[in-house]
Amino acid sequence: MNAFAAQPLPNPPTQNSKLLPALFQPFDVGQAVTVFHVGSALPETVDFFSSYRCKLHFVDVFSALPIVNDEEQPPSLLQQFQQLLHFPEHTRFDICLFWDLFNFLDSEAIRAFLAVLRPHLKRTSLAHAFSVHNSRIPQKNHYYYGVQQADTLSVRHRRATPPGYAPHSQRELMELLDCFRVDRSVLLPDSRLELLLLRS
C-alpha cells in the first residue's frame, strides 16, 4: 500500500447554510484567499479550501477558554489575544469564520479580540458566525464545524461544553462587533442565529 495515497474523507453530519455561499462568491476557484478560522482544523475544511490558492490560519481559541480579565493578575485580555493570534504582520484576511466564538467571550474579551484582529482585516473582509437569537434559552448541545461544501457545514458535537458560555443578545453583539456589520442573518433551530458579517 502506498503510504502517500489519499485516505477517503469521513462523512460527519452536515448542516446546510444559506449564508455561507456569500463568503465564497467573490472568489473564483484558483484565486488567492486568506482565511482565519477560529477553531480546530478539520479534514473537510482543508480539503474544501485546497481548490483555492489558500492560506488558512487556524487558531483554536476554544482550547484557551475561559479568557477573562484579571485586573490583579497579568496577562491582560489584550496580551492574551496577542499571544493567541500572532499572525504575520502582512497577513490580511479575506474570510473570517467565527463559529460560536462570541458565545464564549464576555464583552471585554470580544473588544480585545477585535482590537488584535482589526489590523489584519481588509476593507472587503467577510465573516460568518453563529450566535443565538434568544440569549436566555440555554443551549443544550455545543458543536464545532468544518466546511464540507460552499453551502454545507460539517457539524460535530463537542464532548464537553467549553467554559464561559454566556451568549450576548443580538443587539449587544452588534454593538460589540464594531468593525463588522450584519449583512444578513438567518434564524436556526435551537435558538441559534447564523450571521453574515461585512467589514464596516
Binding site: 489519499a6 485516505q7 474523507l9 469521513p10 488567492a32 480546530s40 482544523a41 478539520l42 479534514p43 482543508v46 480539503d47 479550501f49 485546497s50 483555492y52 490558492r53 489558500c54 492560506k55 488558512l56 490560519h57 487556524f58 483554536d60
Partner: peptide, 15 residues
Amino acid sequence: LLEDGAMFKGSIDMD
C-alpha cells in the same frame, strides 16, 4: 491532506 483525528495547530499555505 488532514486525516480525521489529526491534531494541527498553525497555518496552512496552499498558494
